[in-house]
Design a protein around this nucleic acid. Structure first.
Lengths: 114, 114
DNA sequence: TTGCTTTGTGTCATATTTAACCCCTTTAGC
DNA sequence: GCTAAAGGGGTTAAATATGACACAAAGCAA
């Protein structure tokens, strides 16, 4: 970080939990691939310690580190799909609310301007 | 960040791209929900500028900020599923490689210890 | 047990994120 | 055209992430 108010004032528990779970999943994925922390962190061009912070759920770890981990694990496509607009059901719902209730025909003008 | 070597030495293009795409998706999701940057950033307890960096694809933004954004958008469950061990097909594949080729029956001991 | 590898921590120095201001340009709506 | 809002950019000060190095603890295998 340099987590300003977000982290400093105390992260909402839901957010902290999500990051913790994420770290655990990354650790499991690494072990499944038979990678030591030393091996994986060197592929990510970071130190072993930073990887440890990521797996431990440290909220201050950068997106670069996180994305790099997924990339090394071959899971980065999932990240791209995370907020895929076409799959954002909540967003689509909101968009539909903005649609007019009825379609109003365009009022014809007096001039024939075609 | 405080992006040490990863960001400083030049992020691999794939990773930079992934983060950029992610930022764009977040921006689209925000607009769909009729949220201004000011409104959304205040809900996230961060400044408008930090949100701008996130949407612009800055690799140095922290996981806390990123996760908070998804949380405000209602997309944080997707993040938890990102590296779900049960859906990690690559990991499952690696695990299966570790299985022994043949199952060897346990050698019976001389003592009858049951 | 013994030895080797992996992982967990601690400190320090440095680079950089972040907030809090500022102003500016563009866009949207009236 | 006019006005307000949105988004973009810069600066400064403070907090902190990261790397580098070292050492301890914990697994794991022989």
């Amino acid at each position: 970080m340099t987590q300003s108010n977000l982290t400093r004032k105390g992260l909402p528990p839901e957010i902290a939990d999500t990051i913790t779970v994420l770290g655990e999943h990354i650790r499991i994925a690494r072990k499944r691939r038979n990678l030591t922390m030393a091996e994986m962190s060197s592929r990510m061009f970071i130190t072993r310690k930073t990887l440890a912070r990521l797996e431990k759920g440290d909220p201050g770890v950068s997106l670069a580190v996180f994305t790099s981990a997924l990339w090394v694990l071959g899971l980065d496509d999932n990240l791209k799909n995370l907020a895929e607009p076409t799959q954002d059901t909540i967003g689509i719902f909101h968009e539909q609310k903005k649609l007019p209730k009825r379609i109003r025909a365009v009022r014809q003008h007096d001039e024939l301007d075609f």
